[in-house]
Simulated scan of single mutants.
Amino acid sequence: MSEITPDLVRHLGVLARIQLNDEEVERLTGQLDAIVDNIAKVSQVATPDVVATSHPVALENVFRADVPGGELSREQVLQNAPDATEDRFRVTAILGEEQ
């Protein structure tokens, strides 16, 4: 027997302050029932012998060595800048004041 009934879905809609029409109630009844059934299946196999995990594969951070590379010349740095002057990047003022 199904745990999720249309009346329960309507009640959950009221609690969540969501207006549900009859079509939505019918659709959600089936979806929520499938979710509850799947959780019940997982609960059956989740025994104290099975270690709880958040990921099936262990996560590991991958870091590379922080090694300084070659330096760029001032010309290389500024070659793709939309606007440069006196060997500097030129940007528009963002504070509304000229400095």
Results as ranks from 00 to 15, higher is better:
1 M>S: 13
1 M>H: 12
3 E>V: 07
8 L>H: 08
9 V>I: 04
9 V>S: 01
10 R>M: 03
11 H>W: 09
12 L>P: 01
12 L>E: 00
12 L>H: 01
14 V>L: 14
16 A>R: 09
16 A>G: 10
16 A>N: 11
16 A>H: 10
17 R>Q: 15
18 I>R: 15
19 Q>S: 14
20 L>G: 07
21 N>R: 15
21 N>H: 13
22 D>E: 12
22 D>I: 07
23 E>A: 06
23 E>S: 07
25 V>N: 05
25 V>I: 12
27 R>Y: 06
28 L>T: 01
29 T>E: 08
29 T>M: 06
30 G>L: 10
31 Q>R: 07
31 Q>L: 10
32 L>C: 08
33 D>H: 00
33 D>W: 00
34 A>C: 02
35 I>K: 11
36 V>T: 08
37 D>H: 11
39 I>E: 15
39 I>K: 12
40 A>I: 13
43 S>H: 07
44 Q>P: 00
47 T>G: 03
50 V>N: 00
51 V>C: 02
51 V>F: 00
51 V>R: 06
51 V>Y: 00
55 H>A: 09
56 P>M: 14
56 P>F: 12
59 L>D: 03
59 L>C: 03
59 L>K: 10
61 N>F: 02
62 V>H: 10
64 R>Y: 07
64 R>H: 06
66 D>I: 11
67 V>W: 00
68 P>K: 03
71 E>G: 11
75 E>F: 02
77 V>C: 02
81 A>Q: 01
81 A>I: 01
83 D>P: 01
85 T>A: 07
86 E>A: 09
86 E>W: 09
87 D>T: 14
89 F>Y: 11
91 V>G: 09
93 A>G: 12
96 G>H: 07
97 E>L: 15
98 E>F: 09
99 Q>I: 08
99 Q>L: 13
